[in-house]
Each structure stands twice: as C-alpha cells, then as structure tokens.
Amino acid sequence: MAYWTLLKKELWSIFVSPVAYAVLTACAFSISAIFVYCFSAINQQNVTSISVLQATATLPTFWILVMFQVPVMTMRTFAEEFKMGTMEMLLTAPIREWEVVLAKYTASLIFYTLAWVPLAVNVFYLHVLTNPPVPFYVWPATLTFLAIFLFGMFFVSVGIFTSVITRNQIVSAILAFVFIFVYFCIGLLSYLNLDPWKIAVFGFSFTLDVREIASYMSALEHLTTFARGIFDTRPVVLYVSGTMLMLFLTQRALLARRLQS
C-alpha cells in the first residue's frame, strides 16, 4: 500500500535532517532537567515514582516544553512540500490524499513519541540507581505515558493541520503553538471559581457549566489523574475524536489547497 511507502519516506525525511536530532537532544535535556528538579524538590521521605511524576506533570515548564515541541515537529510536514513544489509530483501519482495525510501524521507522532523515551529512562533510573530503591508502580507510570501520548496525538494532528493551511513553516509553527496554548488555558479555567452561565435562546433556557467543560478538556487534569493511576475513558474519547476531526480537516484542506492553487 502507498501508505507504507509514504510513511517510510516521511520518517526518512524527518531523520535525515540534523534538526530532528537537535530537537530530540533538546527534549531529552529539558525532560531530564525537569524530572531531576521535581525529584529533588519533593519531600525525600515519601518519594515514589507516582509523586515524582505528579510533580513533573504539574510543573509549568513541562507544559511549555510540550507547547514548543509539537509545533517544531510538525511545522515542516506539508508547508515544506508545498514550498518545494513536490506536492504536484506526489499528488499526480496514483495515491489518495488521506494516505499522504495519514503517513505524515504517523511519522510526526512517532517522532513525538521518541522524544518521550528519556522520561521513561529517567523513571527507570529513579528505581534502579537509588538506594534504597524508590518505590515504582507500573500501572500509574504506564497511564502517565498513555496520557502524554493521548494529548500528543491530538496536538500533533493540530500541528499537521496548521502545516497544510500555510506555506511558511514558521507561521505554521506559531499557529500550532497558539492553538495548543489556548487549549491548555481553557483547561486552566476549571481552577477558577466560575458560576455556571444561564443561557436563554428563543425560550429554551439551559445552563452552561464552564467549569465542567473546562475540566473535561483540561490536559493538565487528564495527566494528573492518569499519573495517580486512575484510568478515565473520557479523555481517550475526547482525544481520539479530536484527532480524527483534525485529520479529516487536514484532508479537506489539502484538497481545497490543490483546487485553488
């Protein structure tokens, strides 16, 4: 299938460039620094893998890293191909648009996932290198990574979408950054003490509970809940459907761009 050929090529074009290794190295350093900082900041008496991951997930620096990392990883995907003009060659081959979209998305997601390997290594070292060993809990640790993967999956699809609607990589990165930033901030609304809004439209009246909606969308809350070892299906549904929506929009935008170019 053309998808595999395209995926291979996408991975190749990510990892042939030194930028990829610079990004991975920068991520490894920042993640390790954040982790070590969190480890040293919490009370050494009751330190466990759970408490360190909890601390990591609530650190603003951690989220700033996510907000920068995703746009940098996705900005090149479509924008560059349009700029080089290779899109014309690609789309005149007997392949479908969605295969291109899916291949680019998967490659970026693999890149994103790789960037989180250092966190796993840190958690592992925390257990192995300490004496006495810091207690390690498999389930909460696994769920933490699942949460990071889930919102990453959605954010990467956003990045892919912003890449297809712009011709310039930097503009694409800025748009993706703004989207992720705003999305994250909406989640923060759940910590404010907002009263539910009462809305009446044409005689129908209903209440809009901003706090509840915000907490449903809060990536921060998802991560901290998962890190405590509590599995919740709602974020899974949210992120999977958000991703599908974004990928669908990307495919439409790719078509529309071809049509108007």
Binding site: G85, T86, M87, E88, M89, T92, P94
Partner: peptide
C-alpha cells in the same frame, strides 16, 4: 493517474 507519466514544468525534487 495510473496510466499517465507526468513531468511537471518546474521539476520539483527532494
């Protein structure tokens, strides 16, 4: 597209 070989004007390349 299966049946044609197309060479664009501006040869785009990786």
């Amino acid at each position: 597209r299966k049946r044609i070989g197309y060479m664009p004007e501006k040869v785009p390349m990786y």
